[in-house]
Design a protein around this nucleic acid. Structure first.
Length: 502
DNA sequence: AAAAAAT
């Protein structure tokens, strides 16, 4: 990894200040009083003075006029080049340890004991102080797949909730019900010792609106339609809302995505709660969405905001090895899945096969089952309970291979997934022959979570696929190696070995 | 085209 990192200021006359731990400790007297339940070794107060000095000097080296040392300090295996831009004069200290954040002992316990985290990942170290330091500014944050974005906003939500107030205070909006459920699970685990309550706002077949009592849970996580529905029906009060999170924010704000729903929710809340903090998180922000996100964040409130972006050429994960496989026809693609992926993939972990349409998902599923393979398939036309069951089985490791539409392209987090197959390459719908770069990046990001190794096989059939693949390679500046022959076992074995999976 | 969800 030869990645570099920069923490820079939007305005050179108004540079972001990096304060020392001594300075920040002086402002966190409340938290040190709460940190009594923690294991000895985890307490900032117990860190030896030598160690403090060492950390202090490292953090001082973050000062932005010393770029050389910045790079050295921020170089981190799980993430690469992030550019942070802060506005206004609020000083932020990059959080080396979770203790550096002004969070409750119960939350620290959740992080260490329940989540088994040791220290903040890079995106967490940078964004958490921005999220948690008053005045609570809005944030647009881009970071690599599997780099720990969920922890950033879940911790943000949990620490902005008053556990004694039985009213919704944090709202998280996600593009799919699966992602909403996954995020709630993380929130419940991380907040295990806080007593903070949460509820899912996702479509439920057996819950008519009239039967739903007004929400008194503290955190609400859901999909845009249901949230809007509850809001309109006055079942979801916004009077105490402190923080509003958009997961997969680029998609939530995209034309042809959930733009209208998202805007409506955002404006509805800010009207009632002008100081509600808005966080936008995603691994991808294309130029159009980035511009819109910036625009709406400044529109909805006069507050200054912080932003972090990654250059598209630097978004591909180094731990993922990408391959292309030229297939003479559609049947040969099925043969590759059957004879190569399913046979060898079994040895290296779980596999997700992405297809373009619900229909091709069913077709592929059918033919693989006919050949005697055990695969499961998920797509949006399935019953909700079936979707839940299939995800649950896969997460429990009961199934090895999952066929999916782009339903699971974003956010789905399963550490054991080492193999992603693009049965079809993602295509933008309204342009001729343009690949959907963002979807491609999200799909392949289902493998190699948090720096783990992984392999991606792109099955190409015909000139159009070849052209799409070339465009993707150029766009991300990330060469995709060729598997010499779709028919040879050795070539696939070799590929998996090179990916570090065999 | 797919996604969520309301129409």
């Amino acid at each position: 990894m030869a990645d570099t990192a920069t923490v820079s200021s939007a305005d050179s006359s108004n540079q972001a200040t990096i304060s020392t731990p001594a300075a920040s400790a002086g402002t966190s007297t409340e938290s040190s009083a709460q940190q009594t339940k923690l294991p000895e070794s985890k307490r900032w107060a117990d860190v030896s003075d030598d160690e403090k000095d060492e950390i202090e000097s490292k953090i001082e080296s973050l000062a932005i006029d010393e770029p050389k040392k910045v790079n050295e300090f921020l170089e981190d295996p799980e993430s690469a080049n992030i550019e942070a831009v802060t506005s206004g004069g609020t000083p932020y200290t990059s959080a080396k340890r979770f203790e550096d954040l002004n969070i409750s002992a119960e939350l620290l316990q959740g992080l260490y004991v329940e989540m088994k985290f040791e220290r903040p990942s890079k995106i967490q170290a940078i964004t958490l102080p921005m999220i948690l330091t008053p005045p609570y500014k809005n944030l647009i944050a881009q970071a690599h797949n599997g780099s720990g974005k969920t922890t950033c906003f879940v911790l943000g939500m949990l620490s902005r909730v008053d556990p004694k107030l039985a009213a919704p205070q944090a709202l998280c909006i996600c593009p799919t019900r699966e992602l909403a459920m996954q995020n709630q699970e993380v929130l419940e685990r991380m907040g295990k010792y806080t007593g903070i309550t949460s509820i899912l706002a996702i479509p439920m077949e057996d819950m008519p609106m009239s039967k739903l009592p007004p929400v008194n849970k503290q955190v609400v996580i859901g999909t845009p339609g249901t949230i809007n529905k509850w809001f309109t029906a006055r079942k979801l009060g916004m009077n105490s809302m402190n923080i509003l999170v958009f997961d997969e924010a680029d998609h939530m704000l995209a034309e042809g995505g959930f733009k209208q729903d998202s805007e409506r929710i955002m404006k509805g809340i800010v009207k009632i709660r002008p100081n509600c903090q808005v966080l936008l998180f995603s691994a991808t922000f294309n130029d159009a969405v980035k511009a819109f996100a910036t625009k709406i964040v400044t529109e909805i409130s006069v507050k200054e905001y912080n932003q972090l972006f990654v250059k598209k050429e630097e978004l591909s994960l180094d731990s993922l090895k990408q391959y292309k496989v030229y297939c003479p026809n559609e049947l040969s693609k099925i043969m590759v899945i059957k004879d190569k992926i399913l046979e060898m993939g079994q040895k290296v972990g779980q596999t997700i096969i992405f297809v373009k349409t619900r229909n091709s998902a069913s077709m592929l599923h059918k033919s693989l089952v006919e050949y005697g393979y055990e695969v499961t398939t998920i797509q949006g036309a399935l019953q909700q309970e079936d979707r839940d069951k299939i995800v649950k089985e896969f997460k429990e490791g009961l199934t090895q291979v999952l066929i999916s539409t782009d339903l699971l392209a974003r956010g789905f987090d399963q550490a054991q997934v080492n193999l992603v197959v693009n049965y079809d390459l993602p295509l933008k719908y309204d342009t001729r022959g343009e690949p959907d770069y963002e979807v491609y990046l999200h799909r392949i990001g289902r493998a190699g979570r948090f720096g783990r190794k992984g392999a991606v096989f792109n099955l190409l059939c015909g000139d159009r696929d070849n052209m799409l693949m070339t465009k993707i390679e150029t766009h991300f500046n990330s060469p995709v190696a060729e598997v010499a022959s779709w028919e040879k076992d050795e070539d696939f074995e070799d590929a998996l070995k090179k990916a570090g999976l065999m």
